[in-house]
Design a binder for these strands. Structure first.
Lengths: 345, 345
DNA sequence: TTGTACGCGTTATCAC
DNA sequence: GTGATAACGCGTACAA
């Protein structure tokens, strides 16, 4: 493989019979250049297929037109849609993105951020970062060195730029919908450790209280892990047990779509018809919710929008570093499909 | 926001009372340095929290320890698993990756590659590139300038480095499995334009011939689009039609898991039990196949492995540019779950 | 074992 | 309008 060297600005200058400075001016259009010389230079650029080396540019400006995105998992539909949203904005504005998979490990998260800093990225967007790194003040310190956006992670008192979903309102809307359809016995399915589950659970309890629904601890079903297909299996097992042992529930609220699918499979294996005999509502509106039978009623988190807003916000921060910290909250939207119906008893 | 400047090698040199060269030697361990000075330097490095600027390094070596990955879609489970495989290998070897979403547009594909070249990436991996760009010789030319791996795209006569799945053998194995279970009337469900569908269809026809199964054109069901949730809806509609109009089929081979899910939903809506009355086999072994009820029997493409092998191969090419072109074919594996059973008639 | 000086490719500064 | 030169931060011949 013979890799022929790329032409440099000096090659162009020689061929066009001008100085490097002039070539640079033609490229950047930042200083006046005589029409005739401009044409000469452009011709030389074309002939040599010259394209400026972005590394060298970055070295001077200390600005690379790149950002880093951190995600705990690339194969999770939630995250990949957010990434897509970010990417669409950044691409449009001439940025290229490093995508880093932290595998949900706080240490790796920090290592990858170090790497991104070494590569002089202009900003960092971190999706669902480990709470540990937020609480410890790591991100607060980082934010003083480089523009940072935290997606779906929030901590009072920690001053950073946040973009997040309104999980409380989304949960409330879903519960209200069930209530209006006559459901009074609502099971609640969640994962173990995550701020977002806690938010939803406290909303659920509040809702029960406000509407004089009797709340019992057994209403809360906790599945071990929150993401990925194993969640489906685990949820299915737990929900099967509940459905067999306790006939009073007429519906179930699941904290994400994977769990909702597990619940759906549980009902199916017990020959309980959804939604005629049992209603199920999910959360996230991932692609999954469109391909089940019946299709899932769920709460749309507007993941692409979340990404887009984060992209725009990081650009603001890059352009105006003095811009203060903000917390942007995105509204959710209930998507009604077929997995919820009127309560049958 | 006060962005304090990073320390440079010269800051370290001053603080340690040595020359920049010595600092560089301590960093790279490529020349002997007296123990005492090394300790002095390391102390200074620690104090200043010095970390070398990778941009400057890249400028010298013309090597950046970065690669670019192109994918037609980031929210497709197939692609994201491949990316994960690549990433795991590259991370381990100290590379960072630019991820670019081409949206399946040939023009964008070329533009993003230009961008990556401008950023001096060491290599490029392109997943399911547009056939147009392969056939036109674009990738062959590109391969002479920079190491390139093409995943799941192949063209005889076009000399490039390929890594791909053995779709033929995978299809054969699936069909054999159905045959051995007594199935003689096998429907075939595919998408429109893709080399991989063509390969599978011709294998299917060959199989019918070899086993004296009567082949009729109506056996082949063609769904418009091949990826994403809309495929599920479309497949469902088509398969419902077939199941109603033509009772002879005892099973169905789907070219990917989305289509298989569509078929599953069709059977469900007609109250046809899978696998007791009708068997369905998918292709890809995406996460989807694990969360349906019943879970899908499917052909594993070993997507993560595909990515890992591509990662290793690109490293080889980067290290030894003279290394010739290779075509690496990955074996598939039949994953038996619950959607296939003995033929019932 | 250590230091000096130059180069990587580009842009900014200053002089003409 | 245009050109020479320093500078970005680092690595490396070459000299000491």
């Amino acid at each position: 493989m013979s890799l022929l060297k790329r032409a440099t600005i000096s090659d162009v200058a020689k061929l066009a019979g001008v100085s490097m400075t002039t070539v640079s001016r033609v490229l950047n259009k930042n200083y006046p250049v005589k029409e005739a010389t401009r044409i000469k230079v452009e011709k030389a650029i074309g002939e040599l297929e010259f394209k400026p080396n972005l590394l060298a540019r970055g070295l001077i400006h200390n600005k690379t037109q790149t950002i880093g995105i951190l995600t705990p998992s690339i194969e999770n539909l939630f995250f990949s849609e957010v990434v897509k949203g970010i990417d669409s904005v950044m691409k449009e504005r001439g940025y290229t993105t490093f995508l880093c998979n932290t595998e949900g490990d706080p240490k790796q998260e920090q290592r990858m951020i170090d790497n991104l800093k070494d590569r002089s990225v202009d900003g960092i967007i971190t999706i669902n970062p480990r709470t540990k790194n937020i609480k410890s003040g790591y991100y607060q310190t980082l934010s003083k060195q480089i523009p940072v956006i935290i997606i779906n992670g929030y901590n009072r008192g920690i001053q950073c730029n946040y973009v997040l979903n309104d999980g409380e309102v989304g949960t409330l809307e879903a519960l209200k919908y069930l209530y209006e359809l006559g459901h009074r016995e609502i099971a609640f399915l969640r994962g173990q450790f995550s701020y977002s589950y806690d938010v939803k659970e406290s909303m659920y309890k509040q809702f029960c209280k406000d509407n004089h629904l009797e709340f019992e601890e057994e209403n809360i079903i906790v599945v071990e892990d929150g993401n990925g297909p194993q969640t489906v299996e685990q949820s299915k097992a737990l929900v099967e047990k509940i459905l067999r042992e306790n006939k009073r529930f007429t519906c179930l609220f699941a904290c994400n779509d994977w769990m909702a699918v597990g619940a759906l499979n549980a009902a199916k294996s017990l020959n309980i018809s959804v939604p005629d005999e049992f209603s199920i509502i999910g959360f996230d509106n991932t692609i999954i919710s469109q391909i089940t039978e019946p299709r899932l009623t769920t709460v749309d988190q507007n993941m692409t929008g979340l990404g887009q807003i984060s992209g725009k916000r990081i650009c603001e921060l890059i352009e105006d570093k003095s811009s203060g910290n903000k917390k942007i909250v995105i509204e959710t939207k209930l998507v009604k499909r077929e997995s919820v119906a009127k309560a049958c008893r």
